[in-house]
């Protein structure tokens, strides 16, 4: 621990991040009934608790008394708060389609076709935005400004070592899992097997694969996508990241919600 660090906050920060992360795990439906809690406001709960994490990052950056940490924390504060909007709004788009915020209901109503296909173009746009914003919210590349190892050495956790550092890292990867699991649950049918309307035999074969396997296959697929981004794309600059959110993603998202409303009202969906 650095000499001039704020001891209490310095020790507290990793725990806040871990708590935020594990709270979000509570509502994820791994399979039918395999869910710790089934709120009727499941999605709202996930978005709410996952934003606690940013407080941990800000505290970690401030209490370390290191300039790199502080820059990283301020970047991450600006970034996560902005992208929270996009994540929530893209989820709202799907809530409109599903008519419920309860995760088990959302999965159940994707029995015939996943929401990604059901809502046509608005769903697709929402999915892409969710992936982008989700990557940004978990501080993964190309949005990993908060740690930006080539600029800020290790960003907000520069001064951490040992198990406290491990907590930050674990939280980052669990966050990635949560984003992938949410994308799976909300867009890709959760633990539901892949069904095509008229291919009866295909559907029966698909039913033989257990739901838990389906869930993890989809989640790992999304995680693969997110990791692929990180390894391929250069990192954005802090002003570009905010421009992307406020000038592009947010307006697109708002228009997209209107589109989805139209789709739902006209019963155009599958």
């Amino acid at each position: 621990m650095p000499k001039s660090a704020d001891r209490f906050l310095y020790n507290l920060a990793p725990f806040i991040i871990m708590i935020a992360t594990f709270l979000a795990m509570a509502v994820l439906p791994f399979a039918k009934g395999l869910q710790t809690m089934d709120f009727d406001i499941g999605i709202f709960y996930v978005t709410a608790v996952s934003s606690i994490g940013v407080i941990g990052i800000l505290i970690a950056g401030w209490s370390s008394n290191n300039k790199y940490s502080l820059i990283g924390a301020m970047r991450s504060g600006a970034q996560i708060l902005s992208y929270e909007l996009s994540v929530s709004l893209s989820l709202v788009t799907i809530i409109i389609l599903a008519g419920s915020m309860q995760l088990s209901v959302i999965v159940e109503s994707q029995r015939d076709s996943w929401f990604l296909f059901k809502g046509h173009i608005p769903s697709l746009i929402a999915f892409v935005i969710f992936l982008i914003a989700g990557t940004a919210e978990t501080n993964r590349g190309p949005f990993d400004l908060a740690e930006a190892e080539s600029e800020l050495t290790a960003g907000f956790h520069t001064e951490y070592s040992g198990i406290k550092f491990a907590f930050f890292f674990l939280a980052e990867y669990i966050n990635m899992f949560i984003v992938a699991a949410m994308a799976t649950t909300v867009f890709l049918g959760g633990w539901m097997p892949l069904h095509f309307g008229s291919f009866e035999s295909f559907n029966v074969v698909m039913d033989f694969i257990p739901p838990l396997v389906w869930f993890f296959m989809k989640v790992l697929g999304v995680i693969f996508l997110i990791m692929w981004f990180k390894w391929t794309f250069p990192r954005l600059r802090v002003d570009q990241i905010l421009t992307l959110e406020w000038k592009y993603l947010l307006p697109i998202n708002l228009v997209n919600i209107l589109l989805m409303c139209l789709v739902v009202l006209t019963k155009f969906h599958l």
Binding site: G141, P142, D144, S150, K230, W231, F233, P234
Partner: peptide, 9 residues
Amino acid sequence: MGMDLGALT
């Protein structure tokens, strides 16, 4: 150069 900009591949 790529790595400095965050692209690891």
